Amino acid sequence: MGPTSQSRVLRVLVVDDAPDIRALLRAMLSDNGDVLVLEASGGEEALAVAAADPPDLAVVDQNMPGMDGVTTTRELKALLADVEVVAFTAVPGAERQFAQAGATRHFLKDRFGDLVGFISERAASNVGR
């Protein structure tokens, strides 16, 4: 059998206290067989999930009970230096704080399609990694 290009599943951790947001993202990404969605309802849970099952990409909400999104981002980057973190918030204004904590991008929740497109591009570029 000759060499083939193997795709590697992109592991995406969605961190949001709203179950409907997590379910919507999971549903929107379910058509892409190259994406596995992991979920956490808050920062503390995200750290536990990431330690047990390291994601390639984390999508983090800003306003959550307990640990906020900026702190969650900082802690995820400390735990897993190679994880890419993107912010996914309801209101603009936290971009600088997220960037300082290690996030590479910021998406607004009213633009689900932009985030899904970004994740799909990441999954497509994950081939052979």
Score class of each variant (00 low, 15 high):
residue 71 T to L: 11
residue 94 A to T: 08
residue 44 E to N: 08
residue 40 A to V: 04
residue 76 L to Y: 10
residue 105 R to S: 08
residue 82 D to H: 13
residue 59 V to C: 11
residue 54 P to L: 05
residue 23 A to S: 14
residue 69 G to F: 00
residue 67 M to Q: 04
residue 111 R to C: 04
residue 56 D to I: 07
residue 50 A to M: 06
residue 100 Q to M: 14
residue 103 A to T: 07
residue 86 V to N: 03
residue 105 R to A: 11
residue 92 P to I: 03
residue 75 E to D: 13
residue 108 L to E: 07
residue 65 P to T: 01
residue 122 R to H: 06
residue 44 E to P: 01
residue 34 D to L: 13
residue 82 D to P: 12
residue 118 F to I: 08
residue 123 A to G: 00
residue 103 A to N: 08
residue 79 L to G: 08
residue 31 D to W: 07
residue 45 E to F: 07
residue 92 P to G: 13
residue 10 L to M: 01
residue 33 G to T: 11
residue 106 H to Y: 12
residue 60 V to L: 05
residue 6 Q to S: 15
residue 18 A to G: 01
residue 59 V to D: 03
residue 43 G to H: 07
residue 26 R to V: 03
residue 44 E to M: 02
residue 32 N to R: 06
residue 51 A to S: 15
residue 12 V to Q: 00
residue 95 E to N: 03
residue 22 R to Q: 09
residue 127 V to K: 14
residue 16 D to K: 04
residue 86 V to R: 02
residue 41 S to A: 15
residue 68 D to H: 06
residue 70 V to F: 09
residue 70 V to N: 05
residue 4 T to E: 13
residue 110 D to S: 11
residue 50 A to I: 05
residue 58 A to D: 04
residue 6 Q to W: 10
residue 43 G to T: 08
residue 61 D to C: 00
residue 29 L to E: 06
residue 5 S to V: 15
residue 53 D to A: 09
residue 105 R to V: 01
residue 34 D to M: 10
residue 70 V to Q: 10
residue 78 A to E: 14
residue 61 D to P: 01
residue 118 F to R: 08
residue 18 A to Y: 03
residue 27 A to M: 14
residue 18 A to P: 00
residue 74 R to P: 05
residue 26 R to K: 11
residue 88 F to D: 05
residue 102 G to S: 09
residue 49 V to T: 13
residue 49 V to A: 09
residue 128 G to L: 07
residue 128 G to E: 14
residue 98 F to R: 05
residue 42 G to C: 10
residue 69 G to T: 01
residue 54 P to T: 05
residue 106 H to S: 14
residue 78 A to D: 14
residue 72 T to M: 04
residue 127 V to T: 14
residue 93 G to W: 08
residue 18 A to Q: 10
residue 1 M to H: 07
residue 128 G to A: 10
residue 2 G to C: 00
residue 77 K to H: 10
residue 83 V to A: 09
residue 32 N to V: 04
residue 4 T to L: 12
residue 53 D to N: 12
residue 125 S to G: 04
residue 72 T to H: 04
residue 46 A to I: 03
residue 89 T to V: 15
residue 80 L to W: 11
residue 46 A to M: 07
residue 110 D to N: 15
residue 106 H to D: 09
residue 99 A to R: 15
residue 89 T to K: 02
residue 91 V to W: 11
residue 121 E to V: 05
residue 108 L to Q: 12
residue 14 V to S: 04
residue 40 A to K: 05
residue 97 Q to D: 15
residue 125 S to Q: 06
residue 51 A to P: 05
residue 39 E to D: 13
residue 122 R to P: 01
residue 72 T to L: 04
residue 56 D to Q: 03
residue 62 Q to C: 03
residue 85 V to W: 03
residue 55 P to C: 06
residue 35 V to W: 11
residue 64 M to N: 00
residue 105 R to K: 12
residue 95 E to G: 02
residue 90 A to I: 11
residue 23 A to P: 03
residue 36 L to V: 02
residue 64 M to I: 00
residue 36 L to W: 01
